[in-house]
Computed example of a mutant assay.
Amino acid sequence: MSNPYEYLYIYYLEGIPSSLDPAIKESTFIGNWEEDGFSFLFFSYPHDDLINEMVAREDHLSLIDKYEMTSDQWHGDKIESYTAGSLVISPPWKIPFVNQRNLTHILLDPGVVFGTGRHQTTEDCLGYMEYLCRKEKISTVVDIGTGTGILALGAAALGCDRVLALDFNLLAVRTTLNNIRLNDFHDRILAIQARGEAFMAVPAQLVVANIHYDVMKILIEAPEFVEKPWLILSGLLKSEADKVCERLKEKSVTLVERISPDGVWNTLLVQGRSVPTI
């Protein structure tokens, strides 16, 4: 199997298309990333005519730019297999032969969504998840801002029974659903398009949030958030992590550990108000 996204043609639009013409959906269309009133339409083959027709038809749309690049360039790194603790994470078109009883394989097709798993924050979250799962039985997990679903997949692979994967971006949720299918985790992971703060009341032993600080500072104000037994918080620069730590201290929760292996990104392991078993 070869990489289906080996080369990308990306159309950057101001505005959100009202609907996609059937001709676009039937073409080599990969997906549409929508955010803050802008759209990125991804194709595996150029479709200038289709895009120009759509922009001409919908007055609120305008084409800002067009990009041609490899998927490696889009993701900022090669999409390759790697090991994180006891997990081997591989794209479905490049599965290594690793015959070791103590390793668990995860297939991850990132599509065009950021999150191949190689970012420092992702590896740190996976490391803390494995630490907790080795210490006690973690049955229920909420993954906020799931992206490609890598942390939800990791939770399921580590033995968690019920994982709720949330992302407000529809393309991210669709990508996660595809990865759930690839790993046959339908019975363990539920992926939903939603904002994390809307699901804070959902019972869970562990909440993982690898997200922007602007979202994090809203989440930590939810009363139910700090009631969870365990929190893994990441995606934070030093000054942002300082603010989160200070606010958590005011809420009387315990910072178990704070790490920043690369000196840039910070990840926090937090014990909430509900007392865990270890």
Rank of each mutant, 00 (worst) to 15 (best):
L255A: 10
G85E: 05
G147F: 02
D184V: 09
S86T: 13
I10F: 03
S19W: 07
N179V: 05
T116R: 09
G145I: 04
F114A: 11
V112E: 00
L255R: 09
L153G: 03
F199P: 00
W93N: 07
I51L: 13
Y128R: 06
D167G: 12
I180R: 02
L8C: 06
D77K: 10
R258P: 08
N52P: 02
L126H: 01
T277E: 12
S274Q: 11
C160E: 02
D49L: 13
P4L: 14
I79F: 03
M200F: 10
I144S: 00
A156D: 04
S274K: 14
F225M: 11
N52R: 12
V207E: 00
K249G: 15
N266M: 06
V142F: 00
A155Q: 01
S62L: 14
L233R: 01
D187V: 08
S234R: 05
M69L: 15
E68F: 13
K94A: 13
L170K: 11
T176D: 06
G272M: 04
A204V: 03
E53L: 14
G154I: 02
I150E: 01
M129T: 02
G15K: 04
D49M: 13
A172H: 06
T254Y: 12
E257D: 10
H47G: 07
E136P: 11
V98N: 11
G15D: 04
L103D: 07
K137A: 15
M1N: 12
I138K: 06
P4F: 15
V112A: 01
G76A: 10
L108C: 04
V264T: 14
D59Y: 07
R101A: 14
I192R: 15
T122K: 02
E197S: 14
M54L: 15
I79Q: 01
L177P: 03
K66T: 12
T148W: 03
